[in-house]
């Protein structure tokens, strides 16, 4: 019975590691192969983040089953990376727009303010005082 559980854990860890490796490889291959910065942004921020999540969960299962040491560090790193990946993607997209996209080429926002990259909210209309 215990040997069965160990075998299942071994299969699961190996599967997660292989899938994570493939996701990481696909993410970086997309970074090299896609032909436009805004398209290139998709590959590393999505595929590579999934890949590293797979590695960390595999290591969590491995240390819980084979080393008798249940640790949540890996989950912490996974959550941290999953939280920060969209933020970095947003910042990189904003920097790209700032450098390469003209404001006149964009559709109107249909709100009281323009695009956040070019147009700041007027100081007397800010929801919180940032000064």
């Amino acid at each position: 019975m215990i040997e069965d559980a160990t075998l299942i854990a071994e299969v699961v860890v190996s599967f997660l590691l292989v899938v994570a490796g493939l996701f990481g490889l696909v993410g970086s291959l997309g970074l090299v192969k896609l032909d436009d910065t805004m398209r290139r942004l998709h590959a590393p921020t999505k595929a590579t983040t999934l890949g590293i999540g797979g590695v960390l969960i595999a290591s969590m299962i491995y240390s819980a089953v084979f080393l008798d040491r249940l640790s949540f560090h890996e989950l912490l790193i996974t959550i941290f990376l999953l939280l920060t990946a969209p933020i970095t993607a947003n910042f990189i997209a904003k920097s790209y727009m700032h450098r390469h996209v003209d404001e006149a080429d964009l559709p109107p926002t249909e709100g009281p303010y323009g695009w956040a990259v070019y147009d700041a909210v007027p100081e007397d209309e800010r929801p919180i005082d940032t000064k």
């Binding site: 990481g24 970074l31 590393p44 590695v55 990376l81 990189i92």
Partner: peptide
């Protein structure tokens, strides 16, 4: 461009974390 270089550096950091964790396993 410089934006692509930031993206490549960010991906390098994530891949280095993955390699470190694999070495830890």
């Amino acid at each position: 461009g410089v934006v692509d270089r930031i993206l490549a550096l960010d991906t390098m950091v994530i891949n280095a974390i993955a390699l470190l964790n694999l070495y830890g396993i």
